[in-house]
Each structure stands twice: as C-alpha cells, then as structure tokens.
Design a protein around this nucleic acid. Structure first.
Lengths: 252, 252
DNA sequence: GCCGTTCTTGCATAAACATGCAAAACATGC
DNA sequence: GCATGTTTTGCATGTTTATGCAAGAACGGC
C-alpha cells in the first residue's frame, strides 16, 4: 500500500469520524504503528489534522471555519513567527490587527495573562481573541469579504478613524525594501492605510516567500516598519535593506 | 477513548447543561474519577470552564445563569426551532440577526443556495455565514462583549442606523405578551431597539422557557412581532395573546 | 465539633511516543 | 548490469504521557 493511499484513507476517515486511532490504523493498513505515527506526523505538519495522544483528531472548528485553504500552507513557520511576534507586545498597549493567516496565528499566540486593547477587521482574529479575558476587543465592522476573511469598506474606515493604536500588525501583503508594503486589493489597501496612519508603529511578520514581493496597491513606506519578524533562513541582504530604513529585525 | 474526546464531550455537555459532575463523567467514560478530575483541571487551566466542588460549571456568569436551567435536549430543540425559523426567509431579503445561541443555530440552518444580505453584531452568526457563497455579509462592529458574544456600543448603533432590513431575527431575550420583548443588558437593548426600528418585521424563535419571562430593558412592543417560532409544546394561552397582537405563529 | 465525600499529591505501571539505525525497495547515473 | 544515493519501513532504544491507586488534606453537611 502506498504512503499516499494511507494518507488519503486517514483524511477520509477523519472527515467521517472526526478522529482516528494509531493502533487501529496500523492493523487496518498492515503496517507498524511507527509508520502510522510517521503518517500522522506528516499530515499534522501539513496542517491537515491535529495530533493527540493515541491518534489524531480534526482541527479545531474555528481553524476549519476560517480561511482553511491558505492556512494549511507553512503552518509551522507561521507558528514560529507568531510566537516571536508576540514578543514585541507590552501590557496595556492598543493594537490594530488586520487579516491574514499569519495574523490569525499571532492572535492565537497572545498569552491569556496580558492586558490589551485590540481592534480588528478580521473574523478569525476576533474569534481567537474572543476568549481572552483581559483583552478588550473592538470589532471593526463593514462589508465582509470572503476571500480575505476581513471587513472592508467605508464603515470600516470610519471605525478605524476613531481609534489610535500603539502597534499595527499588518498582514497578508507584499514586502519590498524599495516599494514598501503593498496589498493585492484596493479596498483592503484602504483599510490598511487607515490603520497605518493611526498607529505609532507597524509590525510585520513575514514568511520568506513574502519578502521581496510587491503588489499593486501601496500601503506604507518601507521606513514605516518598526518591527520585522522573519524566519532565521531569511536572506540577509533583504533584511539589511529594511534595517537601514529603521526596522528592528526579530528572528523566529 | 482519547483524552481529547473526553475533553470535547465535557465541553459539549457544559454548553448544553451549564455544568458537569465528576462522578457522572467517570462512569460515562469508563475511567476513574481521578482521570476526570485531571481533565477538568486541564480544561480549567485552559480557561474553558470553572472548577467547582463535585464537578465544573461554565465560565460566564450570564451564560451560566440562563444555561443552567436548560436540559441537555435544548440543543435539539434549538435545531428544530432554527429549521422552522428559516422557513420565513425569501430570496433577496435583507436581515438583521443579533446574538444568542438560538440565532446562531438559525444562521447555521440557512441553506447555501439562498441569496441574502445579512447584517449581524454576533461573532458566532458571522462565522456561520462566512462560508455561504450567496450571502452578502455585513459585520456590525463595536465593543465586543464576551458574555453576549456580540458587539455593542455607539459604533454598533451608528452602523445599524445606516441600514434597513426586511426582517430582524431577535434573540436571547425575555418575551411577555403584555410587556413585549425585553433584554437583560442596557447596551444590548440599545442595539436591539435600533435594529427593530430599522426593520419591517421582527422574527423571534423562542424555547418554552423564554415565553412569559421578562427582563428589565424594553426592546419592542408585543405587537411588533411578525413571526413567532415556538415548540409544539408551547402553552396555547400564551400563544393566543401574541397572535391577537398580530404575530404569526410557526411551530417547529 | 464530627464524618463522609471530594480533592490533591506522589508514585508505579503500561501504553504511546520520538529517535537512531539498519535492511529492503526504489530510483538514478554510468 | 552494477554501483550509488534516496526513500520507506520496521525494530530497538530511551523518553514521555496517561492512568489508576494510595495516603493525606480540604471541603461541606449535620
């Protein structure tokens, strides 16, 4: 039996039952439990299931409900970035957080015992923060765009205009040392610009594939970035360019 | 049985009954009470429940107060109510939907193939609708209140004021044929009043325990209710009172 | 105050786990 | 065809985790 066939069977079984047992799969496939565990580990790394002691279960409902397509990509890297990104937080701060899977990961990585005020136009981020007892959560409403997972439009801009934040966690965008921060969508860019304008500093957590890419709509100048959180494997030349323009580099 | 499955069961049971007993869970899972206590301790540490002598209860005092009286069948009843409630919908309509578990159930019961415009201040409702391809979703932002699961405040009122809807699905409130619709919270009531004002008709889906109860804050007069969705076992006398004031009764 | 119940803590054990390694199956280049 | 490198798999190793049991502490009713 091919490895891929086992993986497919596990996915199907998870979709049907919501959980699988390592021992059960081993006898079903006629392979050792070690092999099954390896399968489960790989699928977990690919973001297709959650590993638990004794087997695996489907991902948390909120994770499945949000932008599931993109979030299965580079889960581990985003988790590492998120953990590093929350390091810039200080108690009592006010934040803007916009959309994107990296920002959702950051929201989930915020510890329960820190007091913050957070304004977000992302449903996924709002959901991640809805449970935190010490976080004052402000939802920035507006027209919901399915593909982005965020609210945009005039209502959103109005709401942003009434707020001011210490930090703005800017997500899902292109990043280039000469062109700065750019977005793929006009309405999305408008909201990002408003948030950037009303924030004292911008924080960007970017996977390597976001570095040195540009999109049509300008959001912020490169020297507006205060904290840049990147992977350890990020190209040093690009980081130098950002650092020269005032960004503080943080490695995940 | 996986540890994770026990945890999930405990969460579900808490959501349904508002409380769990350690001994009861132990015999149901077929494990020792020590194991159950360990589970409860972990969930408490994760902030998902509050540990009490003999078992555990839900965190939110508001939710606990209203939920504790519900039977474990309340989930099924809400599902039945929700299915009946979506029967009043027609393609192309614009809706307000506010918070409450019944409204979340209604949102989940909306079929994928109906075109609607929905404005909601409930995160749960928004999440349920985020996937539906034909629903234009407008999120009504504002200060998020954890116990209600909704956004309230001036920003929310401003956003509501700019919209008009055919129907308003009004949730989580007291219902009395003489006093009308009433809410437990002042800020919540304000938003409900604004939604009621800007809607052509009000729809209320109420479990039996909601009928003939009243809360401090008035939201709408009894004759503002256009559709009242109730269980088959609802007391006829109460229904008559509402019907005389213009409500159309629908049975789940 | 007492007593039974519930809880925490420490400990033992078995199961599940990660890791390193070697054999087998497979592909690749000459 | 044969040597070489890669992937997959199972096994042995040591580690971690889950669980139940026992003993003592904490709680609640009387």
């Amino acid at each position: 039996m091919l490895t891929e066939e086992r993986h497919q069977f596990i996915r199907d079984r998870l979709a049907a039952d919501g959980r699988v047992l390592a021992g059960e799969l081993a006898s079903r496939f006629g392979v050792s439990e070690d092999t099954v565990r390896r399968d489960l580990r790989e699928l977990a790394k690919a973001g297709q299931l959650r590993r638990v002691y004794g087997g695996a279960v489907t991902l948390a409902p909120f994770a499945a409900a949000t932008i599931s397509q993109r979030s299965s990509h580079a889960v581990e890297e985003k988790l590492r970035l998120a953990k590093a990104a929350v390091g810039v937080l200080a108690a009592g701060q006010t934040l803007f957080i916009d959309g994107g899977t990296t920002n959702e990961a950051i929201a989930r990585a915020i510890p329960r015992d820190i007091e913050l005020t957070v304004a977000t136009n992302s449903l996924g981020v709002a959901l991640a923060l809805a449970d935190l007892p010490l976080v004052e959560l402000i939802v920035l409403g507006g027209r919901y765009v399915r593909d982005l997972g965020t609210c945009v439009g005039g209502d959103t801009l109005t709401a942003v205009a009434q707020l001011g934040a210490d930090l703005f966690f800017l997500g899902s965008c292109g990043l280039d040392a000469s062109r700065g921060v750019t977005a793929f969508d006009s309405a999305e860019a408008e909201v990002k610009r408003a948030m950037a304008k009303n924030s004292a500093g911008i924080v960007i957590a970017a996977t390597n594939d976001k570095l040195a890419t540009a999109a049509p709509y300008r959001v912020a100048a490169p020297d507006a970035i205060r904290h840049l959180v990147v992977e350890r494997t990020a190209p040093a030349a690009i980081l130098d360019d950002f650092q020269r323009q005032g960004a503080e580099i943080r490695f995940a």
